[in-house]
Simulated scan of single mutants.
Amino acid sequence: MNLRYKPMPSDLAARYRRREPDAYGLIPEVNVSDGQGMPCRHCLANIAHGDRYLILAYRPFPELQPYAETGPIFLHAEECEAYTGGEAVPPILSTSKDYLLRGYNADDRIVYGTGAITPVDSIDARAAELLERPEVAYVHVRSARNNCYQCRIERA
């Protein structure tokens, strides 16, 4: 199965860079990266030492509902190109040994039994396995330790 790794939408990233309110109605905070594990959810690469970045609350779901988790993410403060690697595992997923993968249905609800901590070198295989299930519309990649959203995986 061909997979597609998707970053946060560019129009949403642009809104946050204009300092429009985040998912909690707050203005994104501006910081300077120390170069240690600040993954941008738009270009899906680490934010380099000395670069400015935003911290904000992000809800990667179209509307509020019980399964619409919201959490902190990082975003380059200056414009960056959206990740276009598509089928390749994004650079941000090389910063940890494993991640939580979880399937969601077309109604943006968790498909129970799909969540599993997955080693980086098994992400493609696990995502493909989940997406073979007809009830799974897409997969989230989240931090295995903090549950922070990283990116979305869909069928290509």
Rank of each mutant, 00 (worst) to 15 (best):
D98Y: 08
E132D: 09
I55E: 13
N2W: 12
A68S: 03
L130G: 00
L100W: 09
A14T: 15
I110F: 12
I92N: 08
P72K: 15
G85V: 02
C80M: 05
E79Q: 14
R15W: 07
I123K: 02
Y67D: 11
R102P: 04
E69N: 10
R15P: 15
A82P: 08
E129G: 06
G103C: 04
N31R: 15
E78C: 08
G113A: 02
R41N: 01
N31A: 12
A137R: 12
A68I: 02
V120M: 08
D121M: 06
N31I: 14
I110M: 05
Y58I: 04
G50C: 00
L12M: 14
G50W: 00
E20G: 02
A14P: 14
L130M: 00
R142A: 06
R126G: 06
N46E: 15
G37L: 05
R4W: 15
L100S: 11
L131A: 00
G71I: 02
Y67Q: 10
H76D: 08
D121T: 04
R59H: 02
C43K: 04
A14K: 12
A127G: 04
I123Y: 01
M1H: 10
E79Y: 12
A13G: 07
L12N: 09
A23T: 07
V89R: 10
R4T: 14
D98L: 11
M38N: 14
L56C: 11
Y67G: 10
N105D: 05
I153M: 11
Q150C: 11
G115W: 02
N46L: 13
S33V: 03
K6M: 13
G86P: 04
L44G: 02
L93P: 10
D107A: 14
I73L: 09
L101P: 06
T70W: 11
R133I: 04
Y138M: 05
C40S: 04
I55N: 15
P90F: 00
V139H: 04
A48R: 02
V120W: 03
A127R: 04
V120R: 09
Y138W: 05
G115P: 01
C148I: 03
T70M: 10
D124L: 03
V141C: 05
N2M: 11
